[in-house]
Amino acid sequence: MGRSMRGAYVAVIAGAMSVTTATMSAAVTPAAAPKPGTERITLSATGEHGNDGSFGPEFSADGRYLTYKADPRPADGRLGPANVHLRDLRTGSTRLVSESVTGGPVTDNDVTVSSIGPGARRIGLSSYSAQLVPDDTNGTSDGFVRRLP
């Protein structure tokens, strides 16, 4: 469970759906809003439900953005490593944060969020993945900063 810094939102992710690039399953509940409610935030850009687990929600300091990890299950049925996604709660858009150097999700190891900078323009990640930057051959967990436009 994640809570926004000012306490306006609470994120709850319960084992259900997942992604094929940007399809996930979680809910954001306004904790202190005029109209309390729950909104599913882990849907694809086309509104499709996921097919495996989503977890580890983290809010930006202003509560506008939410990152979470989601396990992809490609068409071949294998469970892939968890990738990080960013949901803009104002616009409803979702994007892949842990994009590999070749494009698309990382396919060799899970990726975890360590921090979210102001406006979600920089996101701290950690992973054993060798696919987040070129020439990562040390075979151990590294820290990364993903800069977003």
Rank of each mutant, 00 (worst) to 15 (best):
M1R: 08
M1A: 14
M1P: 13
S4D: 03
A8G: 06
A11E: 12
V12F: 09
I13T: 12
I13E: 15
A14V: 10
G15N: 13
G15A: 05
M17F: 08
V19C: 09
V19K: 13
T20M: 09
A22T: 10
T23H: 09
T23Y: 08
T23S: 15
M24G: 09
M24Q: 04
S25H: 12
S25Q: 13
A26V: 00
A26K: 00
A27I: 12
A27Q: 12
A27K: 10
V28D: 07
V28M: 08
T29R: 07
T29A: 06
T29P: 01
A32Y: 01
A33V: 11
E39P: 03
T42E: 11
S44C: 09
S44F: 04
A45S: 12
A45Q: 11
E48P: 01
H49Q: 11
N51P: 01
D52E: 00
G53Y: 15
G53F: 14
G53C: 07
S54A: 08
S54F: 09
S54I: 11
S54R: 12
G56T: 09
P57R: 12
P57L: 03
P57G: 11
F59H: 13
A61Q: 13
A61S: 14
D62L: 02
G63C: 00
G63Q: 00
R64M: 05
Y65E: 00
L66V: 15
T67Q: 06
Y68I: 12
Y68E: 04
K69T: 06
A70C: 06
D71A: 04
D71S: 07
R73Y: 04
R73W: 05
R73M: 09
A75L: 06
D76A: 15
G77D: 13
R78E: 12
R78Y: 08
L79H: 14
G80F: 02
P81I: 10
P81E: 03
A82M: 01
A82K: 04
H85C: 02
R87C: 00
R87E: 03
D88G: 02
D88R: 03
L89W: 05
L89C: 01
R90A: 13
T91W: 02
T91F: 05
S93C: 01
T94S: 03
T94M: 00
R95M: 05
R95G: 01
R95F: 04
V97T: 03
S98M: 00
S98P: 00
E99L: 00
E99T: 04
S100L: 07
S100H: 01
V101Q: 14
V101E: 10
T102P: 00
T102W: 04
G104F: 08
G104L: 02
P105V: 07
D108I: 05
D108F: 01
N109H: 14
D110R: 02
D110H: 03
S114T: 15
I116T: 05
P118D: 03
G119I: 05
G119L: 03
A120Q: 13
R122K: 10
I123Y: 01
I123P: 02
G124T: 05
G124R: 12
L125P: 06
S127Q: 02
Y128W: 11
Y128M: 15
A130E: 14
A130D: 11
A130G: 09
A130I: 05
Q131M: 06
L132C: 02
P134S: 14
P134Q: 12
D135R: 15
D136T: 05
G139M: 06
G139R: 14
T140Q: 15
S141F: 08
S141M: 15
D142F: 14
G143N: 03
F144A: 10
F144V: 09
R147N: 14
L148Q: 14
L148M: 11
L148A: 04
